[in-house]
Amino acid sequence: MIFISELIMPLAFVGIILYGYSKDVDIYETFIDGAKNGVKIVFQIFPTLIGLMVAIGILRESGALDFFCKLIMPITKMLGFPNEAVPLTFMRLISSSASTGLLLDIFKKYGPDSFIGRLVSVMMCCTETVFYTISIYFMSVKIKKIRYTLKGALLANLCGIIASLYITKIIFGGA
């Protein structure tokens, strides 16, 4: 699998360049034009990213997030969801880098082959940073009312989390 991921980039380059030649495209000029566009996009995201990361950084450092997770732990216990995975589950919706940090912390503490280690591995595969993605995408086109987007995305992620819990239990057993 690591072999496949190593192959993707070289294949993309070779495939795109050869296809470009076959269709007689000025590939270098097209590349430069496209790259300019990329620079523009980053400058568009830049202010949003600063605003968002500051807010998340403050929320994380204050301990409010951990406190919130502890509050809802009785509920997760009832559902058979491991307590230790709760902070990660919520952080996953907010910040990709912070959730990666929490994931590695769980691997360190319990091992990747423990029940919780496997559960969080599967969970990271099927969930997304909902709040971050919504901010970036909707702010870039100045949309203020996002209607049912947040509800829908959270529900879909919840379905993924529930599926992770059951598939992990069924395939690997335990807990």
């Binding site: 790259a35 990329g38 990213l49």
Partner: peptide, 30 residues
């Protein structure tokens, strides 16, 4: 956090520009 955001943007600047360049070849060639 704000410093981290700048670092991420700098990294993204290179990678994104490279990729949008490559993608625009794929786009133009169909």
């Amino acid at each position: 956090s704000s410093r981290e955001a700048v670092n991420i943007c700098l990294t993204m600047l290179g990678i994104l520009a490279m990729w949008t360049g490559l993608i625009s070849i794929a786009e133009k060639s169909g």
